[in-house]
Design a protein around this nucleic acid. Sequence first.
DNA 1: CAGTCTTTGTACGGTATAGTACCCTTAATT
DNA 2: AATTAAGGGTACTATACCGTACAAAGACTG
Lengths: 288, 288
Amino acid sequence: MRPCSGAVHYDDGTSVIPSHKNLRNRLLAALTPDLFDALCDQLEPVPLKPGEVLVRPGEPIRSVWFVESGIVSAIANTPEDRRIEIGLVGNEGFVGVPLLLGVDRTPHENLVQVDGTALRLTSAAFDEAVDRHAALRRLLLRYVHAFQIQTSQTALCNSSYNLEERLARWLTMCHDRIDGDEFPLTHEFLSIMLGVRRPGVTTTIHVLEGAGMIKARRSHIRIVDREKLQAAAGDSYGVAEAEYARIIEAALKDSSAADAHTGLWAEPDAAAGRPHIVRSPGDIGRSS
Amino acid sequence: MRPCSGAVHYDDGTSVIPSHKNLRNRLLAALTPDLFDALCDQLEPVPLKPGEVLVRPGEPIRSVWFVESGIVSAIANTPEDRRIEIGLVGNEGFVGVPLLLGVDRTPHENLVQVDGTALRLTSAAFDEAVDRHAALRRLLLRYVHAFQIQTSQTALCNSSYNLEERLARWLTMCHDRIDGDEFPLTHEFLSIMLGVRRPGVTTTIHVLEGAGMIKARRSHIRIVDREKLQAAAGDSYGVAEAEYARIIEAALKDSSAADAHTGLWAEPDAAAGRPHIVRSPGDIGRSS
DNA sequence: CAGTCTTTGTACGGTATAGTACCCTTAATT
DNA sequence: AATTAAGGGTACTATACCGTACAAAGACTG
């Protein structure tokens, strides 16, 4: 197995050369080692800094990012600059979906929310890879569907769930995408994402905190009782996560290990060299 | 040019055998005659009846529908049966996007809203066609992007525009997808689509009617002043429509007529045998 | 340590929409 | 023509959230 072109530096000071064995991105991990090898040389490990804009509205998308850690927001906006978050991307997905669909730019935006790392592929290399490898293309297109469902569920939540439920959903979704139980987050930022007033976020956070679900520090939120938090989200959480599990993860279990025909690898996590919590969205009731 | 396997019956009593010359679906019309011919035999003209459910949540999608006339809603829902519309499909699109993405079912629903006709393709025939014809696949994937933008904009609207703007947007979008200026529509139905109370729709319709934008009859709404209506929608209307124009329509104009490489046909409307209004979404300020 | 900026806490009136109830009109059915 | 159902109009209170303002607390900066 060939090493990739650079090292990924983790928060704890360790760094690794990405290989199929220590991948944290679940899409890449689902590829067969052969297929991953074919991509490996072109994948460049890059840090994701909070506030960094990966995709700017109306400007050509130059790369795709397979998120290894951290969280990236997808944001819709209007000419008069109203904005709202329409989806989250963590290590279960990738940023740059329009390129896969043959579109070079989009009116939307991708913004790093929680810092981390990604494996970056130039648009040219990506185009070539999906053109050449049907298994890769098929897998990523399934992810497009999953993301479409996430967007739609966000739309539904924004209009028929109250702020408490939506905030609980959002925090639960973040929790799915990070290691550990705490992440940096200001009320101001949250208010933009959820499309509500900032003081509204403050008081709602107090409600969740009062119920013992979370613990808020300045610029940080820690998930204390994941189960309760998810219950507070109600049915606003779950549909999109179940769909991801069905079409990305369950599909892997169906195929035999390293099935040459599908090009997908059956048990990515079993081979993971770096220990990390396998945080499956929809893994309901997981204890922290 | 081979005729298709059946006839399409229009409301006015006429009926035609679909061919590339009288297509009303803008995606199919964008294909080269050669490519359309290859599909033609498998396209079955079917009526779309109001209330008909084309895609049921969680059940296998058996066909795709290229809409020729009428309007189909895409609806998101939760287990506890909250629902909201996340997009409209008319003759600019097709129903059954998940199949293109390699997914056989979806938690969402597709419901006929305004009656019309479609050209239906079985999922097997569709799979084979997109597998064989890269030009078709590329075109339809671009539509997936356009639809994703529409969904996202809907999400944005639902949370940051008031009912009057959203209703104006919705009616404008319907107007883009029908012939003429009137379509059947109950307040009850609208209230479900927009995720609001039925009486709220009634009073808001009165506002738009009072401003001379629309005329409401029992179960029907007629667009009287499209320009004003669109202005009332403000920036809630336009982003998705501009994106469709950019990636589907503008892309056609860039390529030369019947460009064998792209497989797309440059000027579909120039060859249209049946006269109909070319109603381009985003054709701002068109007079009725 | 003082100054300054960011983030968070709190308050208060204002408004859009929810929830509900009830009645009237129009259309379809017999 | 009488009956029934569907669609639409109106009214009332309730509430979730907005807009705004301002102060307190925490975190950097010289």
